[in-house]
């Protein structure tokens, strides 16, 4: 069971959240061209290890938050508000 520390609400169970994927991808400028949008929409690093990702606290404060989570241990390293930058631990 993931217990996610929402920066607004505190520690909550994963069922209150909706997963929204990789939080490192950035929408390119509108005129960036087809390749940039192809990468943005479709390609993912999909790392085996630490992953910065969006979780939407749908049944709580309704905010999108960032979570640094490990994809093999499911350990959560840190959480932050949507506009904060997240550091991924080495290892």
């Amino acid at each position: 069971m993931h217990r996610i520390d929402c920066p607004w609400c505190g520690l909550r169970d994963e069922i209150e959240f909706a997963y929204r994927g990789d939080a490192t991808v950035r929408r390119p400028p509108a005129d960036a061209g087809i390749d940039a949008f192809y990468e943005y929409v479709y390609l993912r690093d999909n790392p085996r290890g630490w992953h910065v990702e969006w979780w939407h606290h749908a049944a709580g404060c309704r905010q999108w938050i960032k979570v640094v989570r490990h994809t093999t241990t499911h350990a959560i390293h840190a959480t932050a508000k949507a506009d904060e930058d997240m550091q991924v631990p080495r290892s």
């Binding site: 069971m1 993931h2 994963e14 997963y19």
Partner: peptide
């Protein structure tokens, strides 16, 4: 389960 994972196990929800 609905989140990125390489763990061959899932969660209670």
């Amino acid at each position: 389960d609905g989140y990125n994972s390489y763990a061959q196990r899932g969660n209670l929800p």
